[in-house]
Design a protein around this nucleic acid. Structure first.
Lengths: 243, 243
DNA sequence: ATCTTTTGTTACGCCCTGTTACCTAAGCAT
DNA sequence: ATGCTTAGGTAACAGGGCGTAACAAAAGAT
């Protein structure tokens, strides 16, 4: 994909310049901004893949700005703060920040988080538009990419519901990558398996149903593992035979 | 196909700009408009594939405008409204809106709806104007494009009713594309097989009858699949031998 | 006019899917 | 270890979508 375009928002000129330079030196396009007006200007002037947002912007509050941004468009935001107090962290997450990092930060850690958020959002995007018909193989199982059924290692046909197939597709597209329930729900909605906003424990139940069909022992899942506090991972290699 | 050209109609400059930018960033051509005059100007200056229309346009009412637009030309319209009241929603649909979304909206959801409407209208258009007489082959079956019968893979003649033939034509014209019951009904009426507005479960029954004639095992359809909550798909490649 | 064929409607039942509730397992502090 | 708290598994339930048999209405055919 194209070079990621970041926006660095900080009212302290020195910090702002430092971070901008740092991100540029590491291969990103970085645009500095100090005020909400500048943020908006940048957002209107071109694609922005990620915002590094200082929590403390003098008169303006970064958390509030983030809240407003997230209501309008889905730009990923990483909070940067000099105050590593936990309640701040919480406030940030509730508004919909994608991550949080405290000043002074380890530059490598910042890079890692930025890349993580970028690949995460990229992932969902790639997931959404992936519609190719291919045959997938995992742990002896086969899925032909279109039918609502899988072939077990012993060659048995196992019928899946549409929703289960959708979940399987999402997992197959993201092997070894832990997916949150929100990501799964979003992918299922957009890929058009069915509509319906995911509320409550729907994903848990769905995972359970799929496990009961493709796991040898659903009590001890080998394919779809639970990442406690995070979500689910499909922890098997997947080979794709394009057709 | 060409890049879709959208028109964003909203009297709030901020909202208008934001939505315009957002659609542009996602690969569309987006033209902002605030008044009915601007709408008309844009419509006259070039092709418009879809209008995102704010319901509340100060003095003018979006619903009224939509009604006038639809009388003149068949531009798809998605309503955007800050008021998610149901009667508003209904009013929108009755005028002929193609979809409806409430502010503040999930950007991904908006994108999904826009894409859905665009492919839907593109599809029906191709469906309506396809009238050529050709011979179609699918999964060993043959349909000569005019008679009310098909030849089975083993060469048997299977008589179809007019309505069943119409459904088959619609499906043949749209392989691998899920069609809603409304789309099917509309296509059946427009292609002139018979008239009659589709009410209730007519399409379901019709699909069932066609399945019983051309599916080896109607209980496990291989040709006409059900897309739960959506409609039906003809999931077989179709070859067309022009005559 | 009567019979036959086509086509839409209704009703019933099955299956899919999200919600709820309860229980167990995993952390965590003491 | 023991008890407490919370996340996750899952059975049971409910609502709704879909297949389809049976009926009714409409259109031809004889």
């Amino acid at each position: 994909m194209a070079i990621p375009r970041l926006m660095v928002v900080d009212d302290d000129p020195e910090m702002r310049g430092m971070m901008t330079q740092f991100m540029r030196r590491n291969g990103f396009i970085a645009l500095p901004a100090a005020t909400e007006a500048e943020i908006k200007a940048h957002l209107e002037n071109g694609r922005i893949d990620l915002i590094l947002l200082d929590v403390n912007l003098g008169d303006e509050n970064g958390v509030d700005i983030c809240g407003r941004l997230r209501k309008e468009q889905a730009v990923p935001v990483i909070f940067v703060s000099a105050l590593s107090a936990d309640h701040q962290r919480m406030a940030g997450y509730e508004v919909g920040a994608d991550d949080y990092i405290a000043k002074p930060f380890n530059p490598d850690l910042l890079l890692a988080r930025v890349r993580a958020v970028l690949t995460r959002t990229q992932r969902t995007a790639s997931l959404i538009y992936r519609r190719r018909v291919s045959t997938f193989t995992f742990a002896g199982w086969t899925y032909d990419g279109k039918r609502d059924e899988v072939l077990s290692p012993s060659g048995y046909q196992v019928a899946l519901s549409q929703r289960e197939t959708g979940l399987l597709k999402v997992l197959l597209a993201n092997p070894h990558i832990p997916l949150t329930r929100e990501e799964i729900a979003a992918a299922l909605d957009v890929t058009g398996e069915t509509s319906a906003e995911a509320t409550g424990r729907a994903i848990d139940v769905l995972v359970g149903r799929l496990r009961s069909k493709i796991e040898a022992n659903p009590k001890e899942p080998k394919l779809i593992k639970t990442e406690r506090g995070v979500g689910y991972v499909f922890c098997t290699d997947v080979t794709v035979d394009k057709s």
